[in-house]
Amino acid sequence: MFTRNVMNHRCLKLLALKPTNLINNLRQTSAVSNQQEPERIEKTINSVQLLGRIGADPQRKGSSEHPVVVFSLATHTNYRYESGEFLQRTEWHRVICFKPGLRETIMNYMKKGQRVHVTGRITYGEVKGDDGKNRTTTAIQAEDVIFFQ
């Protein structure tokens, strides 16, 4: 709130200046603003929505300081060949959840085969395998889960 009032006050002062003074004052104001505030960061979108069925009961993983719930979700794509034959392709998604309330709800109520809608974002990472080699992982970090009957 304080910043907004200061900015409004600066704008009113700038509007009262002559054009040449206005330009000089704008340069000074922007130089001060750059020193006080970080640069503007470009907005981006990383959003995923999945509707599918749970492949297995969710598992609690991680440490007591950083718990996480992990489950698999199946989605399907249907194809039809020219011959009239149908083919269904199943894709499996690894879903992780860090949010405390949602984590507990998932552990208490989600069961294998249940239909759910997951909203979240794609995350990438690396884990060390049992053989000591690093491998990349891809997961959907759940922000919200809607359960269906």
Rank of each mutant, 00 (worst) to 15 (best):
D130N: 13
F98W: 15
L26N: 06
L102Q: 02
L15P: 01
Q114V: 03
I106Y: 00
L15S: 12
S47Q: 09
A139K: 06
L15F: 10
A56S: 11
G84P: 06
V127E: 11
R10D: 11
G125A: 02
T29N: 07
K112Q: 13
T75E: 03
G129H: 05
Y124R: 12
N134W: 07
V6L: 15
R60N: 01
N34Q: 10
N5Q: 15
A56M: 09
R60P: 02
H9N: 12
R94Y: 00
L17T: 08
T44S: 10
D144R: 10
V48D: 02
Q35M: 07
G120P: 00
C11E: 07
F147T: 01
V127M: 12
V48W: 00
Q36H: 09
N24C: 10
I45G: 01
R80M: 12
V118F: 05
S33L: 15
M107E: 11
F148K: 07
T123R: 15
S30W: 08
E104M: 09
S64W: 00
E85W: 00
E143G: 08
H117C: 12
S64K: 11
H93S: 05
N24T: 07
L102F: 01
C97G: 00
E82Y: 02
T29A: 15
K99E: 14
F86N: 14
S33W: 10
K43P: 02
T138M: 12
Y109D: 08
L50C: 01
T3M: 10
E65M: 09
G101I: 02
R115Q: 14
V145E: 01
A74S: 06
K112Y: 05
H117A: 11
V68K: 06
